[in-house]
Design a protein around this nucleic acid. Sequence first.
DNA 1: CGATCAACCTGGTTGC
DNA 2: TGCAACCAGGTTGATC
Length: 289
Amino acid sequence: MPELPEVQLVVDDLKTIEGYTIESISLSDRIKLSHRQGKMAVVKHENLQQFEQSLIGQKINTIERRGKYIVMQLTNPINDKVVIAHLGMSGRFEINTNRVSSIPHTHTTFELNYETKTVYLHYIDPRRFGELRVLDHINEFKPFQQMAPEPFGIEGEAYFIDRFKQFKLNRSTISIKQFIMDAENVVGCGNIYANEALFICRIHPLRKVHVLTERKMRELYKEIVKLFIKSIERGGSSIHSYVHMDGEIGSMQDEFLIYQKKLCPICQKKVTSRRINQRNSFYCTNCQK
DNA sequence: CGATCAACCTGGTTGC
DNA sequence: TGCAACCAGGTTGATC
Ligand SMILES: [Zn+2]
């Protein structure tokens, strides 16, 4: 499910539980088994009991997005905490009044109270690539330390261009696709939006970053942000799982120009599909240089 | 440094 | 039709 727009939509839905207090937590047998085997699926904490104990009694203060991560600031009179969640490839949340989820692969259920209301927050993740962590402070989380600014703020573009200049100076030979999928350059750009943005800007995904111009890089950055906004407006891309917690799906997948396409929408020639850095890339060798 | 692969997983789609 | 092979919005760490 998850590139920046999809994560943003999840966060928007999760905001309904801001102000709720965590009463109890239950974990799936799958998670418990995984931990017994020393694999730590989904719950990235050495000790499951500690994980639960550190959350019970905490009030959910705010829920925000940072890159593709979901950040929940928790507060209680003794020690505040922060939950950092990532949806991996197939993770999603659902909020309802069912104490026990009927959905397969529900791995974590939080019982939440607000005054007289009780709701349940379920985390569902068939592939279990997602992550739930509890930390004392957000600064402890390594991936945030080197992460580029948020793309909807004003610093994003300047940061992106600074990074580009550094790579150029260092004679870096990495490809442009690799560059834009690196959260240290721009956050939230996954495989789909990387393919789409490069096609729209007519840049070949294997083009070396150092041969591109600053002008072209600014254009590319703006296109990525534009795609993010367009996607959020359309409710995100829904391919393998739902985006919205009410089961509604997005329609951004109908707007794809190159991702998983057979023919180029510009010249009608056959689209090339090739694995680059473990991800499938779609591009037109005629239109993208 | 950078590209590639493996690991972590299940389920839907494709192709023989 | 049946079933195996292949593929999927991600991230990290090892290897070459
Ligand atoms: Zn073309």
